[in-house]
């Protein structure tokens, strides 16, 4: 498997792209919702799908994983996903729609979570697309809920040379402070193309 060679500056550039994207997402959410939401990306890593498996198991704890998946194709292809442990996703929706937190992740909540994920991922993909002059064809976002093992075994997450650009995203809403993951699943070639594009665009 090829090794990803990426500099600190390049990682910082990706982090900045993600921060601009989630910032846009937060701005849209704040115009729609009565509560104030703040989003930030404290760290970004590029890891192999194998390391991602271990990371996801820890992240999910004993819960299943709820994700919103947005596929994209173009010069760089892959899938962007917003991931939360299901219980956390349900709590997030409960705060956003001012509901009782005891409820399950039912179809209505899943739909709402899908919209929240759609807003955040559109912000991130829009930021990458605009800043790096890239165009993509997108699939319609879908909601997926499964246990971490099944999630990891999905083809998009389990291709041998696939890598994950993992941006841990902090959601701060009123008194709720939770972490979600924005994961961009890409083949190693796509990661290299992304890094090359950043090099050309920003000169490092």
């Amino acid at each position: 498997m090829d090794k990803i060679d990426i500099s600190h500056q390049q990682i910082e550039a990706i982090k900045e792209l993600c921060n601009i994207g989630v910032g846009k997402g937060a701005s849209v959410l704040n115009t729609m919702l009565s509560c104030h939401i703040n989003l930030s990306v404290p760290n970004v890593r590029i890891i192999s799908s194998k390391d991602f498996k271990d990371d996801l198991r820890l992240f999910a704890k004993d819960s299943s994983i709820s994700s919103v998946s947005l596929g994209f194709e173009g010069k760089i292809s892959g899938s962007a996903q917003l991931l939360f442990p299901t219980e956390t996703a349900s709590s997030l929706v409960a705060v956003l729609v001012d509901e009782n937190d005891d409820l399950d992740m039912d179809a209505l909540r899943a739909g709402t979570f899908c919209e929240v994920g759609n807003i955040v991922l559109n912000g991130v993909m829009g930021s990458i697309s605009n800043m790096l002059d890239l165009t993509f064809n997108y699939s319609v976002p879908e909601y997926i809920e499964t246990d971490p093992e099944n999630f990891i075994n999905k083809p998009s997450a389990n291709q041998q040379d696939s890598h994950v650009l993992l941006a841990r995203t902090r959601f701060t809403i009123d008194e709720l402070d939770i972490d979600g993951d924005i994961a961009l699943f890409m083949q190693i070639g796509a990661i290299h193309t992304l890094i090359e594009t950043i090099e050309k665009k920003f000169g490092f």
């Binding site: 729609v97 993509f136 976002p141």
Partner: peptide, 24 residues
């Protein structure tokens, strides 16, 4: 409304699909 137009405007630039959920 700003929540609608701000999101949909990006569709005309080839942006990703936009979802409006039934609950929100």
């Amino acid at each position: 409304s700003p929540g609608f137009k701000e999101r949909v405007d990006y569709v005309f630039k080839g942006g990703p699909p936009v979802i409006f959920s039934s609950q929100l």
